[in-house]
Write a protein that binds this DNA or RNA. Structure first.
Lengths: 191, 191
DNA sequence: CGTCACGAAACGAACGTTCGTTTGGTATCG
DNA sequence: CGATACCAAACGAACGTTCGTTTCGTGACG
């Protein structure tokens, strides 16, 4: 029975929030998962809402780091491929955090929610810029609605964790490639 | 102050579940929305879980009716277009129900959840069959992974209600058309 | 045509339970 | 020794639900 750190608590909260939802998780549930009493959690964090904030901010940082890395790639279509692969990797490497980030934002306090929404918009803008660059480089049709295209792409990406299984028919690398091809072709490109 | 029917209660529950989540909704909250006491809801339904079941089954039926109608269309690509338009129309015409159906299924009792999951698989099969037919008719590339394609398509469709605004830049009919084009091109078709 | 009876709908209070959180004590570790 | 991690017990509030009672709408009957 090792003693726990604050990060252990946050990680546990991420798992529980991802599977049972924020309001479906009690501090006692969370304590059970961690092998301590629910009340003992207050030795590490100020409260339940603070846990949600920590998990979601952690998720947001993963996505943003991935997007920044994608922008370092040479060539717009390469950036698009990297963005897609990066997003899928974040989701599958940090499943609980990512899921909580994607579906429990609504339970943040209004102030925090607004901040997170802003960060999400910024993340979407990364993709929009990449798609714009693709159009500029002639990789994509000139008449595509880039805003809609980014929404379609993120819709596909964000729901990956709802169905993908690491032990399934499709491998992770194949999926990234397939999504990339699908999006590119969908916008008039030829991979 | 009119008296309420069971359907009024279910509709109210759908709205509340869609915005605040199942566990984020108390019977008293729901009662407040409806202008009655939380306890008065028990004159209409057996309990909270029964409300969730009613809302979700209602949502499922809308989607299934839409899919069946799409299958009546002549020609595989026409069916695909009708399926997409139908799905978007259901989501936007029954936003609360649809949203609850899509994101609160996890809070159903295990038995009910299994049944709903089955219905959802059946719905996805409608789309798979349509896409298969498209391949057969030569509308789509022969090497597309139809299972993945159906997942991509449903991902785009299911998240529409998270961002679409009836008063926004893009009109509903344009959106349906644009998604149809995007999916068709993504799978190697030429609209 | 009025009224009376009956079922449905809503109230208001209370049930036992669970919630998030607080407090005070205790063991462990640097 | 001082700080940290945890336990144990308790707090008030809120939860889903039940219960007895009251109000309301409607259709049958005199």
């Amino acid at each position: 029975m090792k003693r726990l750190s604050k990060d252990d608590i946050i990680a546990g909260a991420g798992r529980r929030f991802a599977t049972h939802g924020y309001h479906g998780t009690s501090m006692r549930d969370l304590g059970d998962d961690l092998g301590i009493l629910g009340s003992s959690i207050y030795a590490h964090v100020g409260g339940k809402q603070e846990l949600l904030v920590a998990v979601i901010e952690g998720g947001a940082e993963h996505f943003e780091a991935s997007a920044r890395a994608a922008l370092d790639v040479e060539g717009a279509s390469g950036q698009l491929r990297a963005f897609i692969k990066g997003h899928i990797d974040v989701i599958l490497d940090h499943r609980a955090e990512a899921r909580t980030y994607l579906s429990e934002v609504g339970f943040l306090d209004p102030d925090r929610r607004a901040i997170v929404a802003q960060r999400r918009d910024r993340y979407e803008m990364y993709l929009v810029e990449i798609l714009d660059a693709c159009v500029l480089e002639g990789v994509l049709r000139k008449d595509v609605d880039v805003r809609l295209a980014s929404i379609y792409t993120l819709s596909i990406l964000n729901l990956v964790d709802r169905w993908f299984s690491e032990s399934g028919r499709v491998k992770r690398a194949e999926l990234s490639e397939d999504v990339y091809r699908f999006v590119l072709r969908g916008l008039g490109g030829t991979p």
